[in-house]
């Protein structure tokens, strides 16, 4: 791996990973070790979060195709050794959350993926990628569930910041799906949403209380995109820059 070519992104844009029943088996222990190492790295490298989570799903029965995808992350890392999070000292302390989802992102069981991130001023302090626990019937539902988990994290951060003497309310939570936004504001039983589990309606309560405030953001400026889908090089680098994931070779 040391002499491999460098990749510009951790996951190829057209990357399609499924269970791949007929594929060639690879050593499970080796694969799990690789995933474990990458998982450890996500604490300082949010840019590989999505790719790592995507590959981690296949730990039970890893095939050659999964191994190749995982190795691409290593190829990406090789070219970005000096990338890290940039925490400048001069920032205003306001908290914002972004939530995004990838509808039916998992090719194995068609469950959607939630991706959220939180910024304090302009610095990235919390990020998350998780396959949702239930199958969503629509993109709006998937977005709504993602907004719910984003909200939960926001509430925790709010409490945490209050210990530091920083009391925030109406924390903006950015979502790029208007139907999901409307769902949070309108507590009606709609024929297409009445099956949504009660736990996902948690967000409504907190919006009514004024803990957070859901706002629309266009897909272009949806920063949580980085944690939900494979992106092309330009988009990937744009988001990395916006989130303060910076190559220290370029910092004096």
């Amino acid at each position: 791996m040391e002499n491999c070519k460098e990749a510009s992104t951790p996951i190829a844009t057209g990357c399609y990973l499924d269970a791949n029943e007929i594929g060639v088996d690879v050593d499970q222990t080796k694969f799990k070790q690789l995933i474990g190492s990458l998982l450890y790295l996500t604490t300082s490298r949010p840019d590989i979060m999505f790719g790592m989570c995507l590959c981690a799903i296949f730990q039970a029965k890893p095939k050659e195709s999964h191994y190749v995808a995982t190795k691409r992350i290593l190829k990406y890392l090789k070219g970005t050794i000096e990338v890290g999070l940039w925490y400048p000292s001069e920032v205003t302390l306001n908290l914002v959350g972004y939530s995004d989802s990838d509808f039916a992102g998992c090719k194995v069981d068609k469950k959607s993926t939630s991706g959220t991130c939180h910024l304090l001023g302009s610095i990235l302090i919390s990020w998350h990628n998780k396959k949702q626990a239930c199958v969503a019937l629509s993109t709006a539902e998937a977005e709504y569930i993602a907004a719910g988990s984003c909200c939960a994290q926001t509430i925790w951060l709010k409490y945490q910041l209050s210990d530091f003497g920083l009391n925030l309310s109406k924390i903006p939570l950015f979502c790029d799906n208007t139907s999901a936004i409307n769902l949070t504001k309108n507590p009606v039983q709609h024929s297409r949403t009445k099956h949504i589990e009660i736990r996902h309606h948690f967000i409504r309560d907190h919006i009514m209380n004024g803990d957070c405030e859901i706002q629309f953001v266009d897909s272009e400026n949806q920063l949580a995109d980085l944690f939900t889908k494979p992106l092309n090089k330009e988009r990937f680098n744009f988001l990395k820059n916006e989130l303060g994931i910076i190559d220290f070779k370029n910092v004096n």
Partner: peptide, 19 residues
């Protein structure tokens, strides 16, 4: 003691804070 994080300890004295 911090209300959320029970391992955070805070002391305020005359507008100064130690965490």
């Amino acid at each position: 003691r911090g209300k959320t994080d029970r391992t955070l300890f805070i002391k305020n004295s005359c507008n100064e804070i130690i965490l």
